[in-house]
Design a protein around this nucleic acid. Structure first.
Lengths: 190, 190
DNA sequence: GGACAAAACGGAACATTGTTCCGTATCATC
DNA sequence: GATGATACGGAACAATGTTCCGTTTTGTCC
């Protein structure tokens, strides 16, 4: 039965998983990442049990929906470093990408916070995938003398992520401006 | 019956309100600001209904518990401005006070976010009380040429507040360092 | 094509938490 | 001490993440 590689799931299971990912993506756009699980299930035309069989936790569903975009963001790091003479500039651009990603996903910045135990899978995924990338950019900028702060990649990423919380809910709050200030602080002479 | 001013509540009501404030303060220290209302009620030896009669919403209880410290912080603004030659320095010190306040109150930074409709009373109180203070410091720093960014007081306050989210839960994350970078960015030359 | 076991499904049910409701107890006044 | 107003306690409700289990679907083997 031509089960290629690890593809030996039942047909309905594969179908439902795809439907769920699509429904979740749509629901996240329409109602934010914190849309109730029941709503996603209804949208996909499945029961909640089916969601939990495919994604053990709400956070795992979120990871699955955004995995591709996170990978794209991660891959952009080395590319930016290569195409910019100034590593500090590359870092700034990369953080802009990260911010763009977060502020356009209603509620995602809130969800990746470390302190919420229910979304630890989400937090872990973001950290594991992006901290190394940020670290390489930060190190390069430091080697070039463009950053003197001792702060680590985790701190920078988490700080930028935190600044994106609530962006889009409040016209008085512009996360991009604040991240720009933070980056200015990073690049400022000691 | 010598009802002085607005003091015409029943004796047990006054007693319970005081007990609740004390219990809530203790519970917030022990379990964070997001401790369940039931736990606070149990600690105070009252039913949940009693909490809701005194504080219409969870957020109102939090406001009541921290009102005094918020006032102290607000009052420190003009004082710092008076005792420092550099308004930029006064602003930096005042933001340090704000950060110290937030990071020592487990979960408070999360709770004052704007996007959570359930805590809008909390958000509103912080904003109403502190944004004007921050605005005066920021304006003074701008007049002295120490800040060139166009950012508003609300943005600064909210940004700093956001940076404090999750501080204390994670030894890898140091909110103070990030706020220092943000302030450095504010004070950096255009 | 039909029988059978494994896999997957649906949704009721459970736990947690903020909030509301109302019958009961307490207090202040006469 | 009676009485009406005030306040209380906690059961009950709504929302939401998660678990459980009886039922259905699928793939395989004869």
């Amino acid at each position: 039965m031509s089960e290629v590689g690890s593809t030996r799931k039942r047909a309905d299971a594969r179908r439902n998983e795809a439907a769920l990912l699509e429904a979740a993506a749509a629901a996240f756009v329409a109602s934010g990442v914190d849309v109730p699980v029941r709503d996603v299930a209804a949208r996909a035309g499945v029961g909640v049990g089916t969601i939990y069989r495919h994604f053990p936790t709400r956070a795992d569903l979120v990871v699955a929906v955004y995995r591709h975009q996170v990978e794209t963001c991660a891959d952009a790091g080395p590319a930016l470093l290569a195409e910019h003479d100034s590593p500090g500039e590359a870092l700034a651009r990369w953080l802009d990408l990260f911010v763009d990603f977060l502020v356009t996903k209603h509620g995602l910045a809130e969800a990746i916070r470390a302190d919420d135990p229910s979304s630890s899978a989400l937090h872990t995924y973001f950290v594991d995938r992006l901290v190394p990338v940020c670290g390489r950019l930060l190190d390069a900028a430091r080697d070039a003398g463009e950053v003197t702060s001792e702060i680590g990649a985790y701190g920078v990423l988490r700080g930028v992520g935190n600044l994106c919380i609530g962006a889009g809910d409040d016209p008085r709050y512009d996360a991009r401006s604040l991240v720009a200030l933070l980056v200015a602080g990073l690049r400022a002479p000691a």
